[in-house]
Simulated scan of single mutants.
Amino acid sequence: MSNPLQLDRTDRRILELMQRHGRISNLELAERIGLSPSPCSRRVKALEEAGLIADHVTLLNANKLGLSLLAYIHISLDRHTPERFESFDAAINGFSEVLECDLITGTEADYQLKVIVRDMEHYQQFLLGKLTRLDGVTGVRSSFVLRRIKHETALPLEHLG
């Protein structure tokens, strides 16, 4: 793991504001952090070039789009070989229903997936038509989100050096 870049207070403030207000203009950003627009723009560019700003995205309202079933799925594989993991990873990356996929430890499962679909019927189609058909999948345990208590996309920066 690489050492994190050292950020000063202004860099942290820029990142905090940009995470929460993705459409903020450079002028407004500069005003809110107390810089003139040119130095602010240079700092943002430097943060992008350093890889701290990975992308600029728009967050959509899943419920308004009819995507109302959110599930967490634990997957167990039959073998723990590099080839098996590579094959599974490649297949999962092709499934648009999968929002997140993590190789995990601490449970009987090998992977945890975060999946979103319209409803239980579409979940069944995803599970039986795609997921359980993958080579090496020996166990699938699903949990469904009843109510979201907190959903945060912004990383906490207040405790960084």
Rank of each mutant, 00 (worst) to 15 (best):
S2N: 06
N3D: 09
Q6M: 11
L7R: 04
R9Y: 09
T10Y: 09
T10H: 15
D11R: 01
R12S: 03
R12H: 02
R13Q: 14
I14C: 01
L17S: 01
R20L: 05
G22L: 06
L27E: 10
E28W: 11
E28Q: 11
L29P: 04
E31W: 07
R32T: 07
R32D: 10
I33F: 04
L35M: 09
S36Q: 04
S38A: 04
S38L: 11
P39L: 03
P39G: 09
P39R: 15
C40T: 15
R42A: 06
V44C: 02
K45R: 15
L47V: 01
E49H: 08
G51K: 01
I53E: 08
A54I: 11
D55C: 03
D55W: 02
H56T: 13
V57F: 10
L60Q: 08
N61K: 14
N61H: 02
N61I: 00
A62M: 11
A62E: 07
N63R: 06
N63Y: 06
G66I: 13
S68T: 14
L69K: 09
A71T: 13
Y72K: 04
S76C: 10
L77K: 04
L77Q: 03
R79D: 13
R79I: 12
H80F: 10
P82Q: 02
E83A: 15
E83K: 13
R84S: 15
F85D: 14
A90Y: 13
A91K: 06
I92W: 15
I92M: 00
I92T: 07
N93V: 08
N93E: 11
G94W: 05
G94L: 13
F95N: 02
S96G: 08
E97S: 08
V98M: 02
E100F: 07
E100H: 09
I104S: 03
T105M: 03
G106K: 04
T107H: 05
T107P: 02
T107F: 08
T107M: 05
T107G: 02
E108F: 06
A109G: 04
Y111C: 06
Y111N: 09
Q112K: 07
Q112L: 15
Q112H: 10
Q112I: 12
L113I: 13
L113F: 09
K114Q: 10
K114A: 14
V117R: 00
V117L: 02
D119E: 11
Q124W: 09
F126P: 00
F126D: 01
L127G: 08
G129Y: 08
K130Y: 02
L134A: 05
V137G: 08
V137P: 10
T138E: 14
V140I: 02
R141T: 09
S142F: 00
S143Q: 12
S143W: 01
S143R: 08
F144T: 04
V145H: 06
L146N: 03
L146T: 12
I149L: 07
K150E: 14
H151D: 06
T153H: 15
A154T: 01
A154E: 11
L155T: 13
L155M: 13
L155R: 14
P156D: 15
H159W: 01
H159G: 00
H159E: 08
L160R: 10
L160Y: 12
G161V: 00
